[in-house]
Amino acid sequence: MSIIVNHVNYIYEEDTAMAHPALIDINLQIPEGQFIGLIGHTGSGKSTLIQHLNGLIKPTSGEIFYNNQDINEPGYNKKVLRSQVGLVFQYPEHQLFETDCFKDVCFGPKNMGLPKKEVELRAYTALKQVGFEDEYFYQSPFDLSGGQKRRVAIAGVLAMKPEVLILDEPTAGLDPKGREDILRLISDLHAKMRITVILVSHSMEDVADYVDRIIVMNKGRVAFDAPPKEVFAHYRELEEMELAAPQVTYCMQDLAAAGFDVDTSVTTLEEAKKEILKAFGKC
């Protein structure tokens, strides 16, 4: 069991007139190796939650355990925690600062106090893992395209060899192909490196195609926590939370309503295709 969130509450801007609860009684267990989608509309508390997981925000009450240790206990080494629970923020522009990509990726391992050789080896491996070509290594990160910047940002965190990788909206602002590439990359990383991945997104289609489990946040609470099929079966409730199921799920609902014998719990295009073909007796 790698992360346990136990009755966590967080009150935003405590002691001020603006105080309001951002997280309310959150309980989660995140075992090793899962691929999790965290969804919720803007302001649902999902960003606040992930920042709790690597100790950037301290809960107002409740505990967070990482490998059975309370991360907010005095004396707990948060720097080590942050290298193990890697967090990639939404905009790569917020973290890229070095003159070239390679140096930028070195930043994380360097902060861990590793010897220079190890730092460079890790940076090299990480850039390779995100599919970065050698010829771009010494380019300024600011000249890259949006998708490439994102890769460097992810490599910057991967170079710390985290056990858990959290990505906040990694596809925001990318074009369809760019989105697909990044999602495929993340899925590959999960499969090959066997790390836990938490993908924060507001795109249902993106999430449905890849993850094993979906956590839906709404108004600071966990609204659903289940495999995609079960979560999207609640599409009416999701709509009330200003979310929606993937378009294909709605298609299947429509078809079922029109008298077709199809499974309405379908969440991906592939499944939908199979279901419809089955209904037509084509396979």
Binding site: P176, E180, Q247, V248, C251, L269, I276
Partner: peptide, 10 residues
């Protein structure tokens, strides 16, 4: 590098 809406794709 573009897609089509999911229904169109289906």
């Amino acid at each position: 590098r573009l897609g089509v809406p999911q229904v169109t794709m289906l």
